[in-house]
């Protein structure tokens, strides 16, 4: 069966999250993705979309979300256009062994993406930032 790639662009605003979830759930239903991986998909999409919105503050264009099912995984690609490089894969995870007061507020979202994903890559070319994440469809790999 040919692989279908679902692609849509969303205004760079946090208030777009419900529409992004609706898009992801439509994809999951039509592509037969089960509830567990769909929950992980929501989490990863939210963390990466909000990361682009917050870190690429000079960005003017809509953010592109691409979803594809194949090879026992869901492949996500987020693209942000005409922006400076910002590599979220380099964001350090919070030190969870420190007392709460000593832990930094940031980094938990990207830490979650690392925990949920099979692969997590970033690239920047010709002003386009792209994040590629692979989520396993195998049971037990997701919250």
């Amino acid at each position: 069966m040919p692989v279908r790639t679902w692609v849509r662009r969303f205004p760079r605003d946090i208030s777009m999250l419900p529409e992004i979830f609706h898009f992801a759930h439509d994809f999951a239903e039509k592509e037969g993705v089960e509830a567990g991986p769909t929950h992980a998909l929501d989490l990863v999409l939210e963390e990466l979309f909000t990361n682009f919105v917050r870190h690429n503050r000079d960005g003017r264009h809509d953010i592109e979300v691409g979803l594809e099912r194949g090879n026992g995984a869901v492949q996500l690609t987020l693209r942000d256009f005409d922006v400076a490089p910002f590599d979220p894969t380099k964001v350090p995870s919070p030190d969870l062994t420190l007392p709460l007061e000593a832990q930094s507020r940031g980094g938990r979202g990207i830490h979650l993406v690392r925990k949920l994903s099979r692969d997590f890559h970033y690239g920047h070319r010709d002003g386009v930032s792209a994040i590629m994440v692979s989520l396993s469809l195998s049971p037990g790999q997701e919250p």
């Binding site: 963390e47 709460l100 507020r105 979202g109 830490h111």
Partner: peptide, 14 residues
Amino acid sequence: YISSAGITVILELH
């Protein structure tokens, strides 16, 4: 559902 943003809300309340 809860994301890192929601976790932060709970954490700050705590």
